[in-house]
Design a binder for these strands. Structure first.
Lengths: 353, 353
DNA sequence: GTTTGGTTATGAATCGATTCAGACACTCTA
DNA sequence: TAGAGTGTCTGAATCGATTCATAACCAAAC
């Protein structure tokens, strides 16, 4: 019950130790500026008073450094953590932060989009990473308005900020060509949401780009009617969509999924319907998340360096903060992707008409 | 290039609008206290000056609220995100935070343990969630020293804080009994690290409890020599350990894994060695993470309410912050677990001696 | 015409640290 | 002995907001 009542301030500690607040501050922050004797006195005074150390909020107000990076994630935070790919990305960010002594502030999304932007405005951070946000996300606008350094990852692709991403169109094209090369002609697509904003501009760059890539790669085999939108990005919507696709009179012999999570849903549906993969249905994912290699059959997918993306985004941001560069938004990194052939794709069955 | 040079302060906005700083502050924070006219003037002044809104750090210093929860995660942040179970937990926390307008500050662990504690001391948060930390983690000590409300999840079990967890021992006992009931007698265990601290006390409560549960459930079938320690909690160490176990002269017919991730590693090893599961080897996981249902064969495992744990921990913490209760550390929630029977367990093969 | 009540605006005090210019004491050089 | 150089310590100014006691104003009530 020693220090139950009031907060102990640095001033109290200084008084107790019989030194000035300046010296007390130095005792904690820059020990080399005070004598050993003073330092010891201050520390022991702090101990007897139960002083929890300099108040972080006060310190940052004075120093102008918030000591944290803000991470704006795409869908509601909930889904964020169900897609292993984004977990890997987060791991990369965390890795870059190790040793920098910075924290990582996740900005939770919420149903009410305005509340959400408020959180961005209130976030005590030195910069933001925008991770795969839609084009009209109010949080992105709020982040931009803060005037802090920002690194955008994946999308939107044309923000006036630094950018880290991949060539989604080319990657999708590779995936589509692979199926064509195997001989498939009836190919369905499991896509992310594809909504339009008020002005009629597409708001999900990623979806647009990948769709375009699929179309290019599929060529004459492209079938607009075989595109299914899955929302949110989780196994369940993909499972349902695949059920529907496979129940049609002339079901597809292959599925292009915009994420491994969606592909997993397709696999699930196929298993439930007794459709063998890859014997009767080929499936190509996107992301090469940890789950891809664990799936049965192992998933053929587009591999992209999620961890590296996180690391790079964080490093760029740290650099910008360190050097007070609010500019140089021209920097763009397009990281390489690769089609990883595993066990979920094969030529279509012979008996297909 | 409008506002390139210096930071715009509330004072500047007030001046530009021709009102006092007090009114300007109200215009942003509590519009009901100023007339519509003043509010409009302030807002337009802010717009022309490019004012990014009230500085979060300053606001918090004054109000005494940090606007964020700190989350201290167990292993290095990196691994955190490779185990889907903890992702689900995080999702639960995020869910409870939705609408509260609070942020979630992840405190990154790092190789150098002292640096790590510094991050805790510097974190601008209103409270901490300690998620499955080891007993001698310096970050936990640092968090305790901050004097903020804390909720501990899973472990350590005897911190003087609120606690949310499960009955690990009983759950492990259930898993072990299941194997015994199937007729297994040679049963290996894949355990978490089991290290001792300087005083010789075990530092990983979770491991201790589950081990005790396994022992109780296995009874005479318990074999100390068949316990393998896997570190970190990832598939790879488990894969290696299982390889070793299955290569022995009298290999086990079943494996009890302390997490699904470890169980997945065991499955992988079995597949590589051509040992059929559950025909020749039964595997029981722990956690019922999303991966468990996707594994092949689907994993028999202990289900625990990860999401609920996260939600509850966050809610308790929010409540404690709201009501300025630094006390009532007596509250403990032990959430229910359940053995989920799926396809990875079966009676041992007949020809076993 | 004074009182009362309600709304709106003001500006100084405050939150809790960091920092910087200056004071002091002491040693070492020239 | 003056001057330069070092090492320590002090205390006030500062970071950028919020808040609260006070005042000003106006309308309605007496």
């Amino acid at each position: 019950m020693a220090n139950a009542k009031r907060r102990v301030r640095l001033r109290d500690v200084a008084e107790q130790a019989g030194v000035s607040v300046g010296s007390a501050s130095h005792a904690f922050g820059r020990p080399e500026l005070v004598s050993e004797a003073v330092r010891a006195r201050v520390l022991s005074a702090a101990a007897t008073l139960g002083y929890p150390g300099p108040d972080p909020s006060a310190r940052r107000l004075r120093t102008g450094r918030a000591g944290a990076l803000g991470l704006i994630v795409s869908e509601r935070l909930r889904y964020q953590f169900t897609d292993p790919a984004s977990s890997v990305f987060l791991g990369g960010v965390a890795q870059a932060l190790e040793g920098a002594g910075l924290g990582l502030l996740l900005v939770p999304d919420s149903r009410r989009r305005d509340e959400t932007a408020v959180a961005v405005r209130n976030a005590a951070v030195d910069g933001f990473i925008v991770y795969s946000a839609v084009r009209n996300d109010p949080r992105v606008a709020a982040a931009l308005a803060r005037g802090l350094p920002i690194v955008t990852v994946d999308q939107p692709r044309d923000l006036p900020t630094r950018f880290v991403g991949i060539d989604d169109r080319a990657a999708a094209r590779d995936a589509a060509r692979h199926l064509r090369a195997l001989g498939h002609t009836r190919i369905a697509v499991l896509a992310f949401v594809n909504a339009l904003d008020r002005e009629g501009k597409l708001i999900v760059d990623l979806s647009v780009e990948r769709l375009a890539g699929y179309r290019e790669g599929l060529g004459p085999a492209w079938d607009e009617a075989a595109v299914r939108t899955c929302r949110p990005n989780a196994t369940e919507p993909a499972r349902r969509a695949t059920h529907e696709l496979l129940g049609a009179t002339r079901p597809p012999t292959a599925v292009l999924a915009m994420s491994d999570v969606l592909a997993l849903g397709a696999l699930q549906a196929a298993a439930e319907l007794g459709v063998s993969v890859p014997g009767h249905l080929s499936v190509v994912g996107f992301d090469d998340s940890p789950a891809a290699a664990l799936a049965t059959p192992q998933l053929t997918t587009i591999s992209q360096p999620h961890e590296e993306k996180g690391r790079l985004a964080a490093e760029w941001l740290l650099h910008a903060i360190e050097h007070r560069e609010d500019d140089d938004p021209a920097r763009r990194a397009i990281l390489p992707t690769e089609l990883v052939l595993r066990a979920s794709t094969a030529p279509p069955p012979r008996d297909v008409t």
